[in-house]
Amino acid sequence: MAQRTIEIIVGLFMIAGLAALLFLALQVSGLSPKAAEETYTLYANFNDTGGLRPRGRVSMAGVTIGTIDSITLDKDTFQARVAMSIHASVDNIPADSAAVIRTSGLLGEQYIDISVGGDLESLKDGDTFYSTQSAMNLERLIGNFASGR
């Protein structure tokens, strides 16, 4: 076969590879083509984070508005301190909103849901949620139920 034909076919092959990579990036891993969105950081303290993980999502009314950055232990209060990056466009979260850990479905991953409060003040970069609700722990729930407390 002529060298030129082969070069064209190999070129198409490489393009197919690039297209596959693009497909995996956009459609499969949901990478958005626009540059990383501006974010600001909020904190929340929980007694029990359960199965919460970094990179998990933060949502409000079911809409994703940010991701979990890190989960660390506060050595003074023995609580877990969760740092979240919230999209800069969502800049009016009322200051008395609560951060609640929820599970999507029965087996799904855990995420932070923000239940909206009614304060006129909004949370700013670096603020901490005043009220939080820890992960529902099925075993503890059953234990409490069984011991009648």
Partner: peptide, 9 residues
């Protein structure tokens, strides 16, 4: 890698 990407897709 090209083949593996195509395989996954």
């Amino acid at each position: 890698p090209v083949l593996a990407l195509i395989f996954s897709v």
